[in-house]
């Protein structure tokens, strides 16, 4: 019975780094589980996968997955990933990070990578707070939610992430909670196999910081909430999927469309202007 693994995801994890730093009830571990299953289902050679993450609790994913990975500085995983993809178009370049990293300090990179249809896949774990630094108000914190820097409730309008990704040009946009493990896994497979900028928002509980401060119960309570208050509306108008404190969560695959990736667009433009003189750049895209 040698070499029997306790868990099917174990071969993909750096077990020497365990135990991980995530709190009991945290949703990020579920995201890792779903991702490893998605990677298996997608049929992609793990040697051709690169994981890029930023700073924060979710950023730790890059250190725990036994894949080529890069843990960038705060906010920078998307431009790093674009650079990696442009230099090695044959790789699958996947970004795992939190909303505090991707949407605030790195927000400019997100909208421009979506606009240019950079061929990277972004898995954004949204737990509504800067959890690692102790729970300051973040860019998706619902109005009236409590954070250490908004002791009586947030008053800044939060980002609606699917709408942001949709309106800036992402070709694939989905949202699931960590309760929706099968749907999330399927969306990850679809995103991994789809050319262009794909954005999957994953609503995840932060029991230690966000749930506790907002009296939303523990991790299990969050799962019950996701189960009860989520509505699957595939193809929903992303303008309508904004979130409110203790409000419903619209989940589903919202956007799935095709347009030229950053490198394809470059090839098309130069080929049209230069004709046969232009040697197309490899794009890594099989259409």
């Amino acid at each position: 019975m040698k070499n029997q693994h306790i868990n099917p995801v174990e071969p993909y994890l750096r077990m020497d780094r365990m135990p991980h730093i995530w709190c009991p009830g945290c949703g990020i571990g579920i995201v890792v589980n779903c991702f490893v299953r998605a990677l298996n289902q997608s049929g992609i050679d793990p040697d051709l996968v690169s994981i890029i993450s930023g700073i924060g609790c979710t950023g730790r994913i890059a250190g725990y997955l036994k894949l080529d990975s890069f843990h960038t500085t705060h906010g920078r995983p998307i431009p790093f990933a674009t650079g990696l993809k442009v230099a090695r178009p044959e790789l699958k370049v996947l970004v795992f990070s939190g909303e505090g990293d991707l949407v605030s300090i790195g927000g400019n990179h997100l909208i421009h990578a979506a606009r240019r249809n950079s061929d990277i896949k972004v898995f954004c774990v949204n737990n509504f707070t800067y959890a690692m630094t102790g729970g300051q108000v973040g860019p998706t914190a619902p109005i009236h939610s409590i954070a250490t820097t908004t002791p009586y409730g947030s008053y800044d309008r939060p980002f609606n992430l699917p709408f942001l990704a949709d309106s800036t040009g992402a070709v694939y946009v989905a949202r699931w909670t960590t309760y929706h493990v099968r749907q999330l896994t399927r969306s990850m497979v679809e995103a991994i196999n789809k050319p262009g900028f794909c954005f999957v928002e994953i609503i995840a509980p932060c029991p230690t910081i966000y749930q506790r401060r907002n009296r939303l119960g523990d991790g299990l309570e969050a799962m019950r909430y996701y189960k009860r208050y989520s509505r699957v509306i595939n193809g929903a108008n992303t303008r309508m999927v904004g979130l409110e404190l203790k409000g419903p969560i619209i989940v589903g695959k919202f956007i799935d469309r095709d347009r030229s990736t950053l490198l394809e667009a470059m090839n098309e433009e130069f080929s049209s202007k230069l004709g046969a003189r232009y040697q197309p750049y490899p794009t890594g895209v099989v259409r």
């Binding site: 705060h74 800067y130 690692m132 630094t133 102790g134 300051q136 250490t148 820097t149």
Partner: peptide, 10 residues
Amino acid sequence: PITPQTHVVE
């Protein structure tokens, strides 16, 4: 927010 400045601003 950035560790270890957080308590000042909080």
